[in-house]
């Protein structure tokens, strides 16, 4: 198999989220919505319909007071690599509206191709995909803050976290203008990473030993969500608490958390 088809030396962007540091404040969610023109409605308490590319879940160890413990877990699109780019959603899309990019490892979503069959939503084990049940409506005047680098979606299509790909494109453009052949780690950071007040999110090229994520993902406390499904996601989580690591998959009592990879 050719190098560019199995990532080889190409970029593979991913994230390491330190759950010991994450406070669940929700900055990442708002930063994402503000960056990516995500709409809002008057009632957003039905979380199945509430579009949040980044969503912070609250986990509990389930023990009664006072042994209770909670942990917050931010969940962007996991940008699954699967095996050779066969991520669950990409495999089922009949419209090629979602695709796995071997150059970056980003799972894309092309809204104008999507016709809203929602197979990808059924296939995604992380609930990272959202369907536009309604046309987006901004209160009069508020459409002024929309970001021109991200297209506004319409009802009837699916959307999800794009790793702020517009920022990657802008970083590449800037590098080209400056005569550079490649971008630096700090040139391309997602909106959530940049905003996180606790510094819980680290973003970078998982294939590049010079990037922080390269080392962090190898930490003994690292785990991925639903490891055993073989989705091969690119979001790594760190937690010093075993119950949190166990919560990453549906383990039986006598099983330990699965090893990455």
């Amino acid at each position: 198999m050719k190098a560019e088809e199995n990532h080889g030396n190409t970029k593979k962007f991913g994230m390491v989220i330190d759950l010991d540091v994450c406070t669940g404040c929700g900055s990442c969610m708002v930063a994402c919505m503000a960056e990516n023109n995500v709409p809002f409605r008057k009632d957003e308490s039905d979380k199945l319909k509430s579009i949040t590319w980044m969503r912070v879940y609250k986990l509990s160890n389930g023990k009664p007071y006072p042994e209770t413990d909670i942990c917050y877990l931010p969940r962007p699109c996991q940008h699954c690599e699967g095996h050779d780019g066969h991520s669950p959603c990409v495999s089922v899309c009949p419209a090629t509206a979602t695709d796995y990019d071997m150059q970056t490892g980003i799972v894309s979503q092309i809204y104008t191709r999507c016709f809203g069959c929602r197979y990808c939503m059924a296939a995604c084990p992380y609930h990272a995909r959202y369907f536009n049940w309604y046309d987006p409506v901004w209160p009069d005047g508020m459409e002024q803050y929309l970001n021109p680098d991200v297209s506004v979606r319409m009802r009837g299509v699916v959307e999800k976290c794009s790793f702020c790909i517009q920022r990657y494109q802008a970083a590449k453009d800037r590098a080209f203008m400056e005569g550079k052949t490649d971008i630096e780690e700090s040139d391309y950071q997602t909106a959530c990473t940049q905003a996180c007040p606790a510094g819980a999110i680290t973003f970078g090229d998982l294939n590049n030993p010079a990037h922080a994520v390269y080392k962090l993902k190898k930490q003994p406390n690292a785990f991925r969500l639903l490891e055993r499904l073989g989705t091969n996601p690119k979001i790594y989580y760190l937690s010093s608490r075993e119950w949190v690591r166990r919560a990453g998959d549906n383990y039986l009592k006598n099983e330990g958390p699965a090893k990455i990879g």
Partner: peptide, 8 residues
């Protein structure tokens, strides 16, 4: 860093 209110 920035909080959820500042972002909005």
């Amino acid at each position: 860093g920035i909080c959820a209110l500042g972002l909005a």
